[in-house]
Design a protein around this nucleic acid. Structure first.
Lengths: 157, 157
DNA sequence: GTGTCATCGTACGTACACGAACGATATGGG
DNA sequence: CCCATATCGTTCGTGTACGTACGATGACAC
């Protein structure tokens, strides 16, 4: 184990000479993002109105509601998932009868995805709960702080 | 598919009457947290100095460096992972010879975890890179905005 | 001391997340 | 026309993340 003296030396070497707070995991941006994301997911799960729908499934369904028909890769780009992840999400949505697919007539590499009637019905319902989920997640902050957080987050993406 | 007219009606029903921006997935806190966390993880992976160490493994090792010896459950609470997740993280760290365990002499339910010599050597190295990873993640923001983001995030956890 | 309840670690199932490799298809240059 | 290159979707492997259930152990009331 490293002694406290050695730790202090390490800190003075690595911390910025200005602010010079010790390096603590709990204050790091990556750690805070992970924890905040965990909490947001938990609130989503209890508040979206269907315990079997995950955040990524929800955003995929919402995008298909917005665009009617999309290739799997393009959908993935729109919701920020790589194609391997997208593959699993789409497979589960198809297995549950929420999403349908057909070959793209103009490009044999592509699969076009769309909502089924049941998928459409479900999205309509979930979208009603979406705002409340976001509101609950941001509850600890006042209106101005909420706006600021959204702005800052979008700028580090 | 729902018509645009129907969508407009839904929006006016669900959006707050004050700000009344349309509900867009890309503006929701949960979505932004997921994307920001993805980017932070990618920066971590390229910058921490060992491509086989993940953010959660890193924070576990750092906590063990700080506390010398911890039970698995307590470590999990300190780094924000439930016991099932912690179990997998610890198993992988033990398989790689970075962490050692022994039964708690005072409580037969507990397993005490500690860093091996190799684990200690690795943490010392990784901790040198930690600040640069955080700096790179926050690079798009100025100093005041960085502080504000960390504050806002910690308040919604 | 005994029974009740909580805690600890493990195991199983499901779902994101992504790198890497693969085959099929499309595109553009020569 | 043909070849190099790119894109698309799939598959495999690894690693979070968490709910649930389980058995072992501990703590506490009685």
């Amino acid at each position: 184990m490293r002694s406290n003296v050695a730790k202090k030396q390490l800190e003075s070497k690595t911390a910025s000479s200005a602010a010079s707070r010790p390096y603590r995991i709990e204050d790091q941006i990556g750690y805070l993002l992970r924890r905040a994301h965990q909490r947001a997911s938990a609130i989503f799960q209890t508040g979206i109105g269907d315990p079997n729908i995950t955040p990524t499934q929800y955003s995929s369904l919402a995008k298909l509601d917005e665009y009617t028909e999309l290739s799997q890769n393009l959908l993935g780009r729109l919701v920020g998932m790589d194609k391997a992840t997208m593959q699993g999400v789409v497979r589960r949505l198809k297995e549950r009868g929420l999403v349908d697919s057909r070959p793209d007539p103009g490009d044999a590499r592509r699969t076009l995805l769309s909502l089924t009637t049941e998928g459409q019905r479900l999205v309509n319902k979930l979208l009603l709960n979406g705002p409340a989920v976001s509101r609950e997640t941001l509850k600890p902050l006042n209106a101005q702080e909420q706006k600021q957080l959204l702005d800052l987050l979008s700028r580090i993406i």
